[in-house]
Every structure is written in C-alpha cells, then in structure tokens.
Nucleic acid binder design. Structure first.
Length: 263
DNA sequence: CGAGATGTTCGGCT
DNA sequence: AAGCCGAACATCTC
C-alpha cells in the first residue's frame, strides 16, 4: 500500500505515544523483517526509553527514542502502523509491538516485504542521512530530472519514476498519476523525453505536494478528478477524455494510462 | 484454484 | 561496466 503520503500518515499514528516510556517490547516471528539486526538485544534496551519524535522521508520512517535509540521502519508492500489498547495481544502479523503504560504501538506486515532497523547513537543513522532530497525540496530541480532522463535513455519512463534514488517516495499509483497529468505515455523511453522534462518535473512535485495535503492527513483519497480514482478497475474511464484506460505491465508493474491523452 | 497486489533486491544477461 | 529485466520474497484477496 504505502507510498510517500501513506507513509507519512502511518508515521503519525505513533504520535499517540510521544513522551511516554516503552515498558515492554514484543517481537513476533518475521526474522526477515529484522534482517541484519539484533532485535533481541534491542528489545532488551528499549524499555525505559521515551518516544521523543519521528519523521518520514520517501518511503522510510525514523522513530527517535531517549537514550540515543532509534527505530527505522519501511512498510514494504503491506506494512501498517497502528495503536492498540495496553492489553493488546499481538496477532500473527504483528511483528513489533512497543507497549506503553496506556497503549501499544504496533507494526504489522503480512507479506513481510518491509524492514525494521535499529540504531544506537546521538545522531540519526547513516542510512537515514543518506536518503535523497525530497522531490518537493529545492534540490529537486528540472535539471536533475533532465540529467536522469539522459542517463537512463533506454528505460521506460514509468520504470524511471519508480527509481527511489531519484524519485524518493514515488510508488506505482503516484507514477501513473504523474504521467497522466504530464500526458506522457508510460512506455516511452527516457531518451525521447528531453523536451518533456519540465512537465514531468512539475507534475512529480505537484502530485507529491497534493498527496501530502490529502492522503497524508487522514488517509482520505486524493482530490476528485485525479487519475487515481479510475486506475484500479480494468475498465476505468480517463477523467479528461472519457476513454477507457489502457493496462499493461511496464517496468514489472501494472500500469494504467490513457491511450488518447498520453503520448 | 490461479492471478495479482501501492516494494525492494539480487542474479544474470547485454 | 553499467544498465536493464525478470524472478524471488510471503501472504492475502478477488
């Protein structure tokens, strides 16, 4: 499920636990989620620490605790963050639960494509600091997009939008939305899009900006008129021209677009 | 029952 | 050598 704005929404769910101590940590299976980590050691270190704050960037989140402890979460395809009562009993897919006096902070992920990382230090972990600048930041310029299109000349533009080092936080539905607004055929290769770089840049920023003002706030759907609303069913109609949307696998992902509006 | 799912990573081919 | 593609990961839902 989660792309940029949904990740921000999920991050805020644990705000309910701000300034409170963790009393107990429950780990449940899913060793894959903790790959490269030592969850048992960390579960022993966390009780007594307080949740001090958190941040989301791209599809990653980082939770900061006192005592210099940090927890990083990536939701993968089916990860979720939620809050349950203090007497919560973790279910099959609730892989990490941070109990507090008044509630339980829960991370679940049935498919286990997500990832949980632990870190101890005074500054955020290196993997966090190394994340690319947001597409809504001043560093994300039209020149950056133009360079990338040149370098990936033979890659389908749909696949290019999913490259996280260049378009951090953009996922499958946002990529389709961006291309629909920019009127670009998702099958086109980047090398043919030199003159469309500005539109692609502008719509990337716009889709992310508006998604952060809607989806991220309350998990509501994006605004009416967005391609989003027609891209799920096989027979949706283009909000602009009414033509039935096309469907194909591009860059290994299901892609929907309007054969008339997008060239 | 088979197909597909809003993501990443790895191995292999060009 | 870099870039690209397809498979794999694990489970649920339609």
């Amino acid at each position: 499920m989660p792309e940029l704005a949904e990740v921000e929404y999920y991050r805020r769910q644990w705000d309910a636990g701000l300034r409170r101590q963790v009393t107990r940590v429950a780990l449940h299976g899913g060793a894959r989620l903790f790959r490269g980590e030592d969850p048992v050691r960390f579960a022993a270190a966390l009780p007594g620490a307080r949740l001090l704050g958190s941040e989301a960037r791209a599809k990653q989140m980082l939770f900061r605790f006192s005592r210099g402890l940090w927890v990083g979460v990536h939701l993968g395809m089916t990860g979720k963050i939620r809050v349950e009562p203090r007497d919560f009993v973790p279910g099959r897919h609730d892989h990490l639960v941070l109990f507090q006096a008044t509630q339980a902070l829960v991370f679940s992920d049935p498919r286990m494509f997500g990832r949980v990382r632990f870190f101890e230090g005074t500054a955020p972990p290196p993997w966090w600091t190394a994340l690319p600048a947001a597409v809504t930041s001043p560093e994300f310029t039209v020149e950056v997009v133009r360079d990338f299109l040149r370098r990936r000349a033979r890659l389908a533009v749909k696949a290019a939008l999913l490259v996280q080092t260049r378009f951090p936080g953009v996922g499958n539905w946002m990529a389709d939305e961006i291309l629909w607004r920019a009127r670009i055929d998702p099958r086109r290769t980047c090398g043919t899009l030199a003159r469309r770089a500005e539109g692609l840049w502008r719509e990337t920023r716009e889709v992310c900006r508006v998604a952060m003002e809607t989806v991220a706030v309350d998990f509501s759907d994006p605004p009416e008129g967005w391609f989003y609303h027609v891209r799920w069913a096989g027979d949706g109609a283009c909000p602009r021209c009414g033509r039935t949307v096309k469907s194909a696998t591009i860059g290994g992902r299901t892609t929907r677009w309007c054969g008339r509006c997008q060239r």
